[in-house]
Design a protein around this nucleic acid. Structure first.
Lengths: 342, 342
DNA sequence: CTGTTAGCGCGTTCAG
DNA sequence: CTGAACGCGCTAACAG
């Protein structure tokens, strides 16, 4: 049988209450007594049964997910995963709430975070926007003892406890490698469509892509980046125009959302034009169809379900001050071809 | 507050013991009473607190992992992940044991499984070998009420409850796609190294690879498969020989283990020979180094840690008769390039 | 067939 | 500063 608090009490020669005070770092124990108890804990190799502790405490973990109000398929998928987690909440002792905020708006996001401080939850997962106000608001929440995880979009710094998302610089490099390899020695130009250069993930992906593709195939002409605002119609217009203009377009990399527009434009390209190698991000119903039809050649993906489940595990663990399985919380850069679609 | 067994008892007008009998499908309850209790459960929306139940039962889940005695890096990694799970066992209420069996030997594996029946654990995870005796042994374990998960290597059929591993046909197709795309229009021959055509995973990978590469690039000459027995030295000899013999070798696909030998042979190839596009399976210290040095072009991987954790979750859930999060238990076919290595 | 009662391992009163 | 006693939600004897 595993050692219990009773065993600690016995070997340390104290009562259960004292053991409990030591375990929960509460005041009211003489230093000498505390030391005796800690020695006993180490000696018998006690590990606390969190399930029993939570039962006794009647504890639940109030968690809040702060996500951008947005229409793109990836964010919809993310929200669906949060809803799924809400459905599981009773068994996982969590109480999860979603807060919508306008997208790409630092001050409003910061205000939303500050509003949480009125009734601070155990943890907050937030799709971050890189803005000083957000930084500050996260710092304040942390001060209030709230565990913080950035989700999908990071905001590096000591304020947040963890980032549940992918390394976007590496993702861009991966896209660059695939583009370079798929093009073989072919020359020509390569177009890049981003959402907005104001968000860190997009900047990182672009940087990684340019660097790697330049290394691999210096002869290629990487065109100036087009900003489609993650909007299918804008992306469609930009890509259609580009296809018409650039006769020798060899490849196109879409590092943001709005890929519905990209796929539509690729499908409607003039018959004369050879299909460029096309690489996009995030597996959605649209990009999946594009991959299957051959209009897209590869999709880089981050698993939204994994990100949400990971954020919850990390927030709970952090609230309890216990470690996580690092490998389990690493979010992969998934590469999907037609052949390994889930 | 969530409804509890007391609430059920009250609304159904019965005692706790009766509620418990109904919840655990134990005999000794009149059909009418049972129906009343079930109605009450539905009415108040009761969901049982597994943590509390397990605490009361003092339940632990005895699990056994049956894995091939083997020296290759992948299996070593798998065992390391099982050891890690053993270290976590106390907090997860599991008691995990490892059983080593000779590799590629159906009858001995079956015998090992039969030995488990003497003291049947709650669940068994087994790296399966496709053999009638194994099928039968798994069936017997299942009869004894043991939950069964096949690990890494499947053995399809109704006997096992779940497969924690990748779709190897799709993995082979993915390798074929990458090979075809990386080769561009280039012609020449492509070599394939397998471990043994006796194991299902290797057969599936080969079949998928051949089919997909044939579709994509019918001009390529896919050479007869070489069997390296997953042994680095044998693989080295085979590949070195092939490199010397085949002047126009454009690509090489290693679908089994022993990749240390492959990498060594590639590194020692005659200066005249262009490096063939090389794709291998499983991320190990050796294949990682090969990818980083550029001798390998891509690695397909199955995450052993994920497989082990997933197997444990599924076995526990199955032992309790509760559902799992399907998406969480799908093992991905990871594609690693130099750029997205973890 | 059904009910009563005493715990599982831990946290929390409330007295000493 | 320390200890005894009770309860969290559920299960498991043991009675009836």
């Amino acid at each position: 049988m595993r050692p219990t608090v009773h065993d600690i009490a016995e070997t340390a020669g104290v009562s259960l209450a004292t053991v409990d005070r030591v375990l929960n770092r509460r005041p009211g124990v003489k230093a000498a007594t505390r030391e005796r108890v800690e020695a006993a804990i180490r000696k018998i190799g006690f590990v606390r049964d969190m399930a029993a502790a939570n039962l006794a405490k009647g504890r639940t973990y109030p968690l809040v997910f702060v996500v951008p109000r947005g229409d793109n398929s990836f964010m919809e998928g993310l929200k669906a995963e949060i809803e799924a987690a809400i459905a599981r909440a009773p068994q996982e002792r969590t109480e999860i709430a979603i807060r919508d905020v306008p997208r790409f708006d630092g001050p409003l996001l910061a205000a939303a975070l500050d509003r949480l401080a009125a009734d601070p939850p155990a943890g907050v997962a937030v799709v971050a926007v890189d803005h000083p106000a957000v930084h500050a608001a996260i710092g304040r929440l942390k001060e209030a003892g709230v565990a913080i995880v950035t989700l999908v979009s990071d905001l590096p710094g000591p304020a947040r406890d963890h980032f549940a998302g992918v390394d976007n610089l590496a993702a861009g490099r991966t896209a660059g490698s695939l583009m370079g390899r798929f093009l073989g020695g072919r020359g020509g130009s390569v177009a890049v469509v981003a959402g907005s250069m104001l968000v860190g993930d997009h900047r990182d992906r672009l940087e990684g892509f340019r660097a790697r593709l330049g290394e691999l195939n210096p002869a290629l002409d990487i065109l100036p980046v087009m900003e489609g605002r993650d909007d299918p119609d804008q992306v469609h217009a930009l890509v259609a125009d580009c296809l018409a203009r650039e006769a020798g377009l060899a490849g196109i990399y879409s590092l943001g959302a709005g890929n519905r527009g990209l796929i539509r434009a690729l499908g409607q390209r003039p018959d004369a034009a050879a299909k460029p190698v096309a690489i996009a991000h995030e597996l959605t119903p649209h990009t999946r169809a594009g991959l299957q039809s051959g209009l897209l050649d590869a999709i880089l993906n981050q698993d939204a379900g994994h990100e949400v489940r990971s954020a919850i595990r990390v927030l709970k663990a952090h609230a309890d001050g216990i470690p996580v399985i690092a490998a389990q919380e690493r979010i992969r850069i998934d590469i999907f071809l037609k052949d390994n679609l889930p």
